[in-house]
Amino acid sequence: MSTPAAQHTPDGAVAARARGLTKAYGSGETAVIALDSVDVDIARGRFTAVMGPSGSGKSTLMHCLAGLDTVSAGQVWLGGTEITGLRDRELTRLRRDRVGFMFQSFNLIPTLTAAENITLPMDIAGRRPDERWLKQVIDTLGLRDRLRHRPAQLSGGQQQRVACARALASRPELIFADEPTGNLDSRAGREVLGFLRGAVDDLGQTVVMVTHDPGAAAHSDVVLFLADGHIEDAMERPTAEAVLEHMHLSTGGHPQTPWFDAVRGRLGDDDTDLEE
């Protein structure tokens, strides 16, 4: 397997890197390989999209790169730090200080105001936020007059903007966005994608976004296509049409999977249990 993203790094700097990254769930006969010896470099200062059908391992890849999940084999670096083999406390600190997160939904702590949510990772760390940077982020995302609101008082788009601000606030080395527009209408979704784009272009941040939406992927600098635990391809300067066409080809001409993916996401048919 090649490392397609590496050759596109403009200045050669890498924000995150994986070598031989393998993730298996279960063991023995019933083991499911989610990632199969993946090598990937995430270029610093760029907007990388990760696409793939459901079960292709795209979310697992992101979780492993972000230190949320343990790997079965291989190595992962964040900047110059190897994160494979770190203990929970070190991983927690790493996520807190060096990574920003945006999830599809339930991004904010309901008891905290927008402002408190934005500075939460730094508050947890006991660090004072950089006021000028914070002001810039808040103004860029247009949240100035929403700071004292609780999440319940914000629209879905506004909530994702707060999440975006939180991810940016501590000026992390890497921002991971997991389907950030999945729960938004198209206008609010475009807005959030615009902010992520701006974070890369204007603020010099590094963003990795997992998505199934070709339109969302088109906002990125490079798209990595995952299938069956492998990186199959990469596409520079993608357009929605080019991404869609690529998906047609790789799924035998029927772009069904993303649609299924979306339906799955809404029904929430995971084997979750309220009672545990």
């Binding site: 927690t92 996520r95 997160f101 339930f106 991004n107 904010l108 990772p121 947890i124 545990e276």
Partner: peptide, 18 residues
């Protein structure tokens, strides 16, 4: 704790220690 499982997950993801 059960009700706030997602919230706790989120807090842990963005760096709240055990």
């Amino acid at each position: 704790v059960v009700e706030r499982t997602r919230e706790i997950g989120l807090l842990r993801a963005i760096g709240l220690g055990r």
